[in-house]
């Protein structure tokens, strides 16, 4: 579904991605872990071109999306993204946060979008917050709404950029539960996270990134039970 070929990203002199290649298949749940500064967030943000790669190719559903001539807005309609800092639109109510994109992009009319939003809100247990504003919600609630906002676009893949890192510890669970439920529903997911429990439980593949490359890639069982490279063994000994 997503094919990445020899991806490089430089910020000024800082060579963040040094040749990442990977193939993400439909229905997979890819979990990316690694120390900070390893390039895992940059890699994720390249997938929907929030960062423009310096070199390399990204294919999504057979289209070369790194081609400058492609209409990236159209591609992004099919790729949901959830951010570390939620990034709910502060000037809009929860309902408007969710319906803005589907309505303005003419994928649904206002009624359809509202109905869909209420359905999704009920699914994450926040139906009564439809008329609230982001500033009135807790972090966990904001992140669940952010997930709903992306789902309202009916994406084919969901990208998660450290979705629980900015949350108070007692709110991490509620967000992970929503993500687990989403995984069970068959959504293709790419998740950058520090939640090793989630990686083990939900991931179909776990990737270890360091120094701008994928150092190791395996099923969760092998990844955590039998890590191969020294860097990963060292990393796991610190975080587990």
């Amino acid at each position: 579904m997503i094919i990445v070929k020899d991806l490089h990203k430089k910020f000024e002199d800082n060579h963040v991605l040094r040749g990442v290649s990977y193939h993400i298949h439909q229905g997979e749940k890819i979990v990316i872990v690694g120390p900070s500064g390893s390039g895992k967030s940059t890699f994720l943000r390249c997938l929907n071109l929030l960062e423009t790669p310096t070199e390399g190719e990204i294919w999504f559903d057979g289209q070369l999306i790194t081609d400058p001539k492609i209409n990236i807005d159209k591609i992004r309609e099919h790729m949901g993204m959830v951010f570390q800092n939620f990034n709910l639109f502060n000037n809009l109510s929860i309902m408007d946060n969710i319906t803005l994109a589907p309505v303005k992009l003419k994928l649904m009319n206002k009624e359809q979008a509202s109905e869909k939003a209420l359905q999704l809100l009920a699914r994450v247990g926040l139906k009564e917050k439809a008329d609230a504003f982001p500033s009135q919600l807790s972090g966990g609630q904001k992140q669940r709404i952010a997930i709903v906002r992306s789902l309202a676009m009916n994406p084919r893949v969901m990208l998660f950029d450290e979705p629980t890192s900015a949350l108070d510890p007692e709110m991490v669970g509620e967000v992970l539960d929503v993500m687990k439920e989403l995984a069970e529903s068959g959504m293709t997911m790419v998740v950058v996270t520090h939640e090793m429990g989630f990686a083990r439980e939900v991931g179909t593949k776990v990737l270890f990134m360091d120094e701008g490359i994928i150092m190791e890639e395996n099923t969760p069982g092998e990844f955590f039970g039998n890590p191969q490279c020294a860097r990963l063994q060292d990393f796991l000994s610190k975080v587990l």
């Binding site: 951010f83 639109f89 803005l100 994109a101 992009l105 676009m153």
Partner: peptide, 27 residues
């Protein structure tokens, strides 16, 4: 206005102009 607001708008498929008009400028 926080850069994340623009990124969230763009990640949903809204164009630069739409993100400006509906999200950034009101704030």
């Amino acid at each position: 206005v926080d850069k994340g607001q623009t990124e969230a708008g763009r990640s949903l498929g809204l164009s630069k102009a739409q993100t400006m008009i509906y999200i950034v400028i009101p704030q």
